[in-house]
């Protein structure tokens, strides 16, 4: 199947990827070629097959519910692009 330019724009919006508008058609072609490969899945009879989310049928391990001191804030903020007074800075969200 072929993806339309609008579908590509929608997927890019969902993925928060700012695509160059001049290259949307190129992306549409590439993505369509990849999604064509998936069409073989539709032919497979999977009635009653339990979806496999994980290679080992593990149950989630629980840890004790204990407060642990976090000592990494300074180290983590040291590599952030923009911080001030211990908080991460982003463009203004509320007018």
């Amino acid at each position: 199947m072929s993806l339309t330019d609008d579908q590509v724009r929608n997927v890019a919006r969902l993925a928060r990827l700012g695509l160059d508008d001049a290259r949307i058609a190129e992306h549409a072609g590439e993505l369509s070629n990849i999604i064509d490969v998936f069409e073989s899945l539709a032919q497979v009879d999977t009635d009653g097959v339990e979806p496999m989310a994980h290679p080992l049928d593990l149950t989630a391990r629980l840890r004790p519910d204990e407060a642990v001191p976090v000592t990494t804030r300074d180290a983590f903020q040291a590599i952030a692009p923009a911080v001030a007074d211990g908080v991460y800075l982003v463009p203004k969200v509320i007018e």
Binding site: N10, L14, L17, I34, L41, V44, V49, E50
Partner: peptide, 30 residues
């Protein structure tokens, strides 16, 4: 990387999730 992120966002998006993502999880079990 952009290509794969977009493929991933597509197969997880409304209307395609069952046809691609759930289906692939089933064929993964096979």
């Amino acid at each position: 990387v952009q290509r794969r992120i977009m493929v991933g966002a597509y197969v997880l998006s409304a209307g395609y999730y069952d046809a691609y993502y759930v289906k692939a999880q089933q064929t993964r079990r096979l």
